[in-house]
Design a protein around this nucleic acid. Sequence first.
DNA 1: TTTCCGCAGTTTGTATACAGTGTGCAATAA
DNA 2: TTATTGCACACTGTATACAAACTGCGGAAA
Lengths: 228, 228
Amino acid sequence: MPAYKTRAQFVANDLRGRILGGEFPGGSQLRQDALAKDYDVSRIPVREALLALESEGLVEFHAHRGAFTTELSIAKIRELFELRVLLETYMLKRAIPNLTEEQLDDAEGILRKYDAALDSRGQIDNWSEYNFVFHQALYAPANLPETMAIISQLNTKSDRYIRMQLLYTQEIEKAEREHHTLLAFSREGRIEQACQLLEAHILEACEGIVSILEGRAQAQQQTLPNTR
Amino acid sequence: MPAYKTRAQFVANDLRGRILGGEFPGGSQLRQDALAKDYDVSRIPVREALLALESEGLVEFHAHRGAFTTELSIAKIRELFELRVLLETYMLKRAIPNLTEEQLDDAEGILRKYDAALDSRGQIDNWSEYNFVFHQALYAPANLPETMAIISQLNTKSDRYIRMQLLYTQEIEKAEREHHTLLAFSREGRIEQACQLLEAHILEACEGIVSILEGRAQAQQQTLPNTR
DNA sequence: TTTCCGCAGTTTGTATACAGTGTGCAATAA
DNA sequence: TTATTGCACACTGTATACAAACTGCGGAAA
């Protein structure tokens, strides 16, 4: 059986992975012809895949000029992460009272898989996905699908930068410890503390990313100091 | 000169208007061929328009079965409006300290146009748009484009139901008065009161919509009581 | 009678082909 | 040399044509 219902969906999923994986730096043009050859399909499903990625904020269309990967300013990254704080704490607050034992155990199971993957190294790509799956497991009992969709969208948009941070710093262990604590708070129904930790957890990641980007920007300025 | 850069964009904009205007009840199938004939274009731009509307939540694709207008459950409507409260009060709180005299006057100008349109009646279609423009004018100084995009998205999704409410009740005048008060609070920098009013303003609309839908659901049950 | 299978018709999904727009280079003039 | 105009190329946007999937109905089997 075919892995996906349509070619467009397949291309969209795969291309999303490639973009998030860093294959296309921000601002790269995504030529439809080249992608069509890559996937051995026509340009039509490629275009539709690109449109789907546009709605996720990974790509921007300019009429008659094509599709380009997006690049977020530091201000926008800050904005995204603050939105995540707002929405995810809201979500967690509503989820904790509904959490069942079974759901908590599921979340713990995900953390264990994490830890295992963590040992085997080199799995940053997957880590990023597991990370969201864990958070999702905690939020799901809130039963707010629309909110979840937006949170998911925000996570996708920030994903590239989170991977970058993981690449440059060794924050995985710390994040992992925070996840365990977060789960413990949730299990004990300590809503306030859980939300505070979650907020700190998200904002720390944000600051890590921003400091990397700022460092990179400075390095650029030093290399080419001719800013007339 | 062409009004739009691409045919797909034109179709998307026009079709959005038709859907929000109530031409297609929730769950209607949107046949690509029929729409293509309507607009005298091929199915390709129609498909792309439908994909755009899908990302706005107005339409859902089912692989190999086509596109259908979405229908929101009461629970989802409540969720959407609560999200609007969360995000729009957050936005307003951040906007008020940045509001300039000029921006306040702009907002007031929009309200005046409202009032004029209100007298000339029958302009519910436009009212819905003016409504968002006014709110947008108040929020803009917060300088949070990503947040604004999400708020805009939520407004689009709830727009159909707001129009329905305006059609069945005479709440326009009340909403209009609240807008004036909201503007006054904003002008005076009374953040807390402005946000409280905004919250009530949004939740009132929500309850109005829900009561209409619940009434309608009951009427349905009475007409066909054969629920085996 | 009820259930299952298969076929025809309809609609979507995709390939191919064509038209239109933007871009960059080259040639010309100042 | 530098600025400007026009042309050719490349790529996107769209039309047309074809392939594949789903739906509903009718008939056969249990």
